[in-house]
Amino acid sequence: MSTLVTERPRTAQNLISQTRQVSFWAEHAAPIGLVVLVIVFSILSPSFLTFGNIRAMLIAAAILVILAVAQAFVITTGGIDLSISATMTVGAVGFGIAWQAGLGFVASAIIAILSAMVIGVINGLLIAKGRVTDFIVTLGTLSVATGLALIISDGKPISVNSPELLRLTSGSIGIFGYPIILAAIVGVIAWFVMFRTRFGLHVQAVGGSEESAVANGVSAVTVRIAVYLISAGLAGLAALLLVARVGAAEPAINTAFLLNAIAAVVLGGVSLTGGKAKIVGPIIGALLLTALTNGLTLLGVSQFYQPLAVGLVVVLAALLTRYQKK
């Protein structure tokens, strides 16, 4: 019994001594940052921690959570998907066109995801088979996808009055709206795929050392094509939430989503060099960025300051990752 008694203070002490190390803060930057933000904003604004605002924040975070999970797969392999938000736009326009043609919700949703995945196939083939740098390929498809969305839609938003989409945005279970529940399901499946399946292990192996992975019989080409397909497919799924939120399929350029998705992954402690997989981290990173934007709005800070604040947080997080344990 005496061991039990001494054990407790020891773990507490251990925790306290850990907090003296920079690596502790670097390792847990996203959850710590989220807690700090919540405390600060709830002191400064009484409406921050209300039921309505939390619910709204979670709904607003859903798209970014899905995009961050998608980006996490690509970044774990050491790649990057700069076309992710443009791919989402293609998905949204795909949905709009299909809906306009009278295809119904389910068929339109499938077309949205498939049209987004076309961009994913192009990314995957060029990067894995063509051996072109991921940065250049996805920068190219970012532009191509943006252009395609404008061409197909003739530059005009397609309004969508789908009762299914309306239910998706307005429905909720308690404080959790359907969008964040959908994002949570995506997160759980992604975690499972990454950490409990052969494919997930191969994603981490290719990111850690492609040469060693290949020497052990892992097909790096297949893995790379797959992660860009996952990224694009999830961007297509996020497109549904985007159309639902706006009420229309807009061919708009959503650059903020691209930068915030990458920022969320970096905040979540995933190394851009690859090999270090995390799913929960990027999700918390996405929640943090949403809470930051929401809190600043509640405080009446000008919209102009929000990108500045997001940028500062990301750069700070990137600095902190230098102190992560190897």
Partner: peptide, 22 residues
């Protein structure tokens, strides 16, 4: 046993042991 050992540093020992033949 390759000269570079073909191990992935970020993965655990058991993951490396079974890599490609999970």
């Amino acid at each position: 046993v390759q000269q570079n050992l073909a191990l992935v540093e970020e993965l655990a020992v058991w993951q490396n042991f079974f890599l490609g033949r999970e």
